[in-house]
Structure formats: C-alpha cells, structure tokens
Design a protein around this nucleic acid. Structure first.
Lengths: 336, 336
DNA sequence: CTGAAAGCGCTAACAA
DNA sequence: TTGTTAGCGCTTTCAG
C-alpha cells in the first residue's frame, strides 16, 4: 500500500532519480537503452507519479477549478460536461465545486481552489453583488473566466450567451404567433443573467409595441416551485397574458405544470417559453419552446481564454474579453 | 500575483517559519503575544496556505475523490450533492469526476485520483465487468467505497439501496392495483443495479403469481431514448402488458412520453413505474410512481466507511461492509 | 548522456 | 515557548 517513488524505480533500473524523471517525462536526453530499462522497472513496480510532489516542484497542477451556483440545475450540469470535454483535449483535469447558491460557500470554494494552486478558475457567480468581492480577490491571484453570469463591477474575462438577442428571438416568435400581452417570470435580479434577460425582454416588448400585462414582471428564483407559484399568482389576480416568457426552463416547467393543474391550455390560451434547453424541456407536456445555449462553444471559449491568460502570466495587462455567443430558438409545442 | 509564503509572514512577524506554522495551524505551543503578531502579519500580507506543499508534507489532502458514471443523470447529481454535504461536515473537499459511461475513461480518472493522493475514493462503477480491474487496483492503493453499483468479484465496502426490496415494493403495489401481466424495461445487465433489479423483479413476479408478458424483459440503457424505443417495440409487437416496471426514471420518462405519442392511457391502459425519484419524475405527465433512494443516508454511510478505512490504514484487514439501505415507494399518477 | 544536489512550501522532531 | 533542521517526491540546473 506504500506508494512507489521515483527512487525505487531508479534503484531497480540502476540509474539516478534524475534519469528516471527524464525518461518518464520524456523531456531531456536519455539513451534508448536506459529509457527502456527505466520504463520496464517503472511498470514492474507499478510506479505512478505523485502529482502533489510534481505540482509543488513545477508550481502548476494541470488542473482547472470550476465553481457553479447549483449543480442540481441541469443547465449547469451540461455546462460542466462541456467544460470537462474541452479540458480533456488539453490533458487537464477539472476540479468541480458546487456553491449551492450561497455566496459565502462560493467564497470558501474559491479560496480553496486558490490554495490548491489550480492553474485557472472558471466560475459562474451565484450573485451579482455578493459574489463580487470573492471573484475579484480570486481573479487577482489566478487566471479567471466568468461563465454565463458575471458579477457587478469586476472586469474579468467573460463568456456567455447574448441574452438581449435571445429575448429578441423569443419575442419576435411570440409576436409573429399573435401574442399581444406578455409577462416575464424570472428570478430576482441578483445575477447578470436575470438582469440581462429582463432588460432584453422590456426592450423588445417596447420595440414590437406589445403590451406588458398586469403583474407583467414576476421575480422569484430559478426553480420549478417558483414557476408554479408565479402562474398561480397570475391566475388568482385574473391577469393571465397571451404569453409568458420565463427566464429559465425550470421556471417554465413549473409554469406549464401549474397550467395543467389550473386547466389552462398551453399554447391555446397561454404560450410559454423557457431558456437553456435542458434535456427535460423536450419532455414536458407540452414540450417547451426555449432558447438553446451553445454550451460547447461557451466552454471552448472559456478554456481558450484561460490558456491565453496562463500564457501572459497576469490577467491585469490585457483588456478583459467579453464574449457573447449567439443563442438559437428551439420551437416546440408550448407556443404556436 | 506571486503567492505569499510562510517565510514572508515569518519575516514580517519577526519569528521563524516553524512558529508561523504552529500559530496558524493551532497545533503546538505558541505564546498569545506571538500568535497575535503572526496572525496580523499573515492577514496583512494576505497569506493563504499552499495546500500542495502541505499535502506533500503531511501526505494527506483532506480531499475525497468521487467518480460517477454520468453526471448528466440527475440521480448521480443528487448523490454527488449528498456526498458533498456529508464531507463538508468534516471539512473535507470533493474532487468530482465524470466517467461518461466509459470504463477506459473511468480507469484514467481513478488513476488520476490516486496520483493526486486523495484520502479516499467513492466510486459508482460504470460497468460490472469492465470496471472491475481499475476498481480493484484503486482499492489496493487507497480506501475506496463503492456507491449504488458495484463491480463483479471485488470486495470493497459498498453502500446502496436494497434493490430486491425495492422491486418487492413496486410489484406489491402493482399487484394490489390489479395488474396481472407485467414487463421489465431496464439496461443491459452490465452493472449491479441492472442485475439486482431484474432479479428482484423476476423473483417477486413469481412469488405473486403474476405473469410475464411476451417481450417481458427489454434491456437497453439508462436513457429516455431507450424508454421510448422499448415502448414502441412493445406496441409494434402488440405485446403491451398491464404494467411496465422500469429500472430507472429516465427510462420510465421515455416510456410515458412514447405512451402519449401512441395515445396509450397511463395508468388506465398501462401502469408505469420508475426508479430513483429524480426531480423530474414528479413533473412528467402523468407524474411518475417511483422508488425513492435515500441518497443522504447512502452518502453519510459512504463517508463514514471512508473515515473508518482511513483510520485502520488498510482496507484489506477488515471484512468489506455491504450496506443495503431501505428504499421507499413514492406513489404518483402513473399507477392506479 | 548521466549523476549530484538544490529546492518548491510546509510541518514535525529535536534542541535550546 | 521558540528556532534549527530535515525531508515529503519530484524536476532541473550544473558538472562530469
């Protein structure tokens, strides 16, 4: 159970530890014959590098840290999968942390990642304001890219989707299908996604001359429960619009579920749209019209930015990149 | 951006590095006055431990590795959340890896975790046979607990749910609600969950005197798509039973979705049950009757076993624990 | 091409 | 109570 070290391999191969290191890592000159001897000795002993020791010596870990607001949200899960995929191509590992929508926990995770000497950090901050200090402090110490969401007032690299364009897609579609009054169900504007989507919504509603229903903007949280309760509120207030734009799929799923309970026909009486295109969006009854995010692209850009930042050493010199990728509309059965 | 080391703190506080270490870690005698000086110096400089160096020195990382077959499956996501919660109480971090249902990738992840000197590993093996060698090799090097699934022929600690009991719950319920002919839709028997559930199913069907429909056992994979295709097969063969027992919720969700497409009334014409009780089980139309796994308990036991194994140093001495926790049936609208 | 030796940052003996 | 020192396992100059 005692781990095999490079010294034991060296002894067995009859060479020095330096030579073993050179042979195994493949950098530095080693005669073919010695190379062979070392490699067989290593495999006979079942040698495996000790990444900790290597990391200490090299001051790099080949590991990227990632912090997401809530791994229970399928959107973030697929973002994680995309990031892991992108990193794999470079032979780097991912250290994943869940902030459980708690800024204090998120701050702890970030500190822990810094202490672990990860080479860079990808974070989707939980809260626009309350996450700001921790993100800024972390960005000062390490290359850091914000994903999907970003915090107020900090300028680090960011990659996400163009929320304004997304809302344009959604509202143009609803407008074309005859909706006049619309309402928005989102989360409290405590993060950039919420803010951007709401502001894109307001903007396009104005441009298209649509009218905001009574109770036209309902803000809660990104959850199924909130979606259900929002719809119930609208029904109680007798303020149902023609269409309901939800700022994520969980909310939309809650809304359509509550519609079934209240016998409201979707999309006949009420059209509903979501955001993210999580797997289950296509499964609900009716299947959800929603905005698909290009998660693979987002992840690829993030990894690229991180690599670039690691090159230059410090993030502070360059201007921060702000990359908003183009979303696409997936039309299903919850709209006409 | 250069990281602050203990030496700089020592210089500033006018003491030795050893004293700084003692003061900051709180073990070893330090005079209150010096303690203060060290602490203020540390915070002024923004000192943070270098976990890598500490880990090399202490040969422990306070980190547990976890490998799941597929993080896209919500069941594993909630298992991960439960494990992270349980570890948090002990102040240990989780290093999460996704095996993407690929034994070769899983083996790589396991090796990487060993190389990283994690203190222990929690793994839900992808494949009963093909994961066996890697799991065995890993268990030889580190404390390891298998979760939910286990590999053939290796005896490590295991925690999961009692699949036999679960199938008993399901079939008793279906039997009571008048189902006579039943069929089973599962995944290929490449992992223990599949095997156990199928065998529990067969057993209870026999005991209750129910009859297995034609095409009574359909095996594919744990996915929505497979559920849909399985139902379609049954319809085409005109072999629809009274009830369909699915070995996870994804399959069941696929089945109920296909039922909508084929205008098959659930539960009127066909009763359907799932397994795992993922969040979306309650959302589908009709809401799924399913078996809930006690994930928090499972995680707590796993963490406890890992701690115990770390204590004794080696796993080989003790007999392996095999802990099957009791599942519960959640009755919703997909059964009568 | 190979070996000796230093040192990454930290902690635990051991001395003082 | 504090300081000195050795060393965790690895890589990398620098000599040979």
């Amino acid at each position: 159970m005692q781990r095999v070290t490079i010294a034991e391999v060296a002894a067995r191969a009859g060479v020095s530890t330096a030579t073993v290191s050179r042979a195994l890592s493949g950098r530095g000159p080693v005669s073919p014959e010695v190379n062979d001897r070392v490699r067989t000795a290593a495999s006979e002993l079942g040698y495996q590098v000790n990444s900790i020791a290597r990391a200490l010596r090299n001051s790099r870990t080949d590991t990227v840290g990632m912090v997401v607001p809530n791994i229970g949200n399928p959107f973030f899960t697929s973002l994680v999968q995309s990031v892991e995929h992108a990193l794999e191509r470079e032979g780097r590992d991912l250290f994943l942390c869940d902030a459980r929508s708690t800024p204090a926990l998120e701050a702890r995770r970030l500190r822990s990642l810094v202490a672990r000497n990860v080479d860079g950090i990808i974070v989707s901050p939980t809260h626009g304001a309350e996450s700001a200090a921790a993100v800024a402090a972390t960005a000062a110490a390490l290359p850091l890219v914000q994903l999907d969401r970003f915090v107020d007032g900090t300028s680090t690299d960011w990659v996400g989707v163009d929320d304004i364009a997304a809302m344009r897609l959604v509202l143009d579609h609803l407008h074309a299908s005859g909706a006049h009054t619309v309402a928005f169900v989102g989360s409290q504007e405590t993060n950039s996604s919420s803010e951007q989507r709401l502001s894109g919504f307001r903007q396009r509603v104005g441009e298209l001359g649509m009218t905001l229903g009574r109770h036209g903007v309902l803000l809660g949280e990104f959850s199924i429960e909130w979606g259900e309760s929002a719809l119930t509120q609208l029904v109680r207030a007798d303020a149902l619009p023609d269409a309901l734009v939800c700022s994520d799929d969980l909310i939309a799923l809650g809304v359509t579920r509550a519609c079934r309970a209240h016998h409201i026909d979707v999309p006949g009486r009420l059209q509903v749209t979501g955001f993210d295109d999580i797997d289950f969006a296509g499964l609900s009854e009716p299947a959800l019209t929603t905005v698909a995010q290009p998660t693979d692209q987002i992840a690829a850009e993030a990894v690229r930015l991180l690599a670039a930042a690691s090159q230059t050493g410090s993030t502070t010199t360059r201007a921060a990149a702000h990359i908003a990728l183009t979303p696409s509309l997936v039309v299903r059965a919850s709209t006409r």
